[in-house]
Design a protein around this nucleic acid. Structure first.
Lengths: 110, 110
DNA sequence: ATTAATACATAAGTGATTTATGTATTAGAA
DNA sequence: TTCTAATACATAAATCACTTATGTATTAAT
C-alpha cells in the first residue's frame, strides 16, 4: 500500500481516467478496477469515493443512470462531454507534475 | 504552478532529497532551490516549510546549526544518519507511487 | 527614502481523505 | 442451514497537511 499522503489529490484524476477508459461504471466497480490496476497498492475507500462521485455529478462532470440488478440498486456513472475534457486535462496535469517532480528529486521515472 | 492538491504529501520528500543533494541548507535557501529546480512550478510556502523543518528536527531526522550572518540569524539544516535513510526511502516510495499511477492512468512517464 | 528581497516564526482556517458507522442483498463455506 | 464475506450503496465526525494571514527584522536596490 502506498503512503496515503501521496494519494491525496489524485482521487479525482483516477476516477475520471478510469471512467474514460471503461465507460459506464458503478462505484464498487471503480474501487475494484483501481485495486486491480494498481496491484492492490491503491485502495479507494468508500468514504472517499462516494462523496467525490456525488460532487462530480453535481458539477455536471459525471452523469448517472440507476439500474435495478435483481433487488439491488446499482448506480452507473459516466463522463459528460465536459467530464471528458476534464479527464484529459487532469491526466496531463498529473504528467506535468511528475515531470517537475523528476527534476526536483533528480530521479528517472521509467 | 501545479495544482496544490497534487503537491500534498510531497513536501517532506522534497525537503529531504534537496538536503541530501545539497548538504547544509537554510530554510529560505530550500524554497529558492525548489523554485529553481521546478522552474517556478513548485513554490514552498513558509507556512508549510518551517513547521515541517521543526517537526523533522524534533524527530531527529534533521539537525540544525544556527549561524549569525552579520546581524541576521540563519539556521542551517542537515540530515542526520537516520535522515539520510529516510530520504532514500521517501524517494523510492515516490518512484514506486509513480509507477503504480502510470499503470492506473495508463500513461507513459518519460 | 521607500520598496522588494531576505530570513525567521506561528496561528487560524480549509478541505480532501480517513475512520467509523449504517443499511441491505447475494454468494459461498462449514 | 446458518454464518461470514463480498457486494453495493451512503453519510458524518475526525484528522492533518497545507494555505492563508500575520508578525518581526535585516539587507539590497532604486
Amino acid at each position: 500500500m502506498h503512503s496515503p499522503e501521496l494519494l491525496k489529490g489524485t482521487l479525482q484524476t483516477i476516477i475520471l481516467k478510469v471512467l474514460k477508459d471503461h465507460g459506464k461504471m458503478y462505484g464498487y466497480e471503480i474501487t475494484q478496477r483501481v485495486k486491480e490496476l494498481s496491484c492492490d497498492r491503491i485502495l479507494v475507500t468508500e468514504g472517499a469515493l462516494y462523496p467525490t462521485l456525488h460532487k462530480l455529478e453535481a458539477e455536471k462532470i459525471l452523469k448517472t443512470e440507476t439500474v435495478m440488478m435483481g433487488r439491488r440498486v446499482r448506480k452507473y456513472y459516466s463522463l459528460t462531454p465536459e467530464g471528458k475534457n476534464l479527464a484529459k486535462a487532469r491526466v496531463s496535469e498529473f504528467v506535468d507534475f511528475i515531470k517537475t517532480m523528476s527534476n526536483v528529486l533528480q530521479v528517472q521515472m521509467t
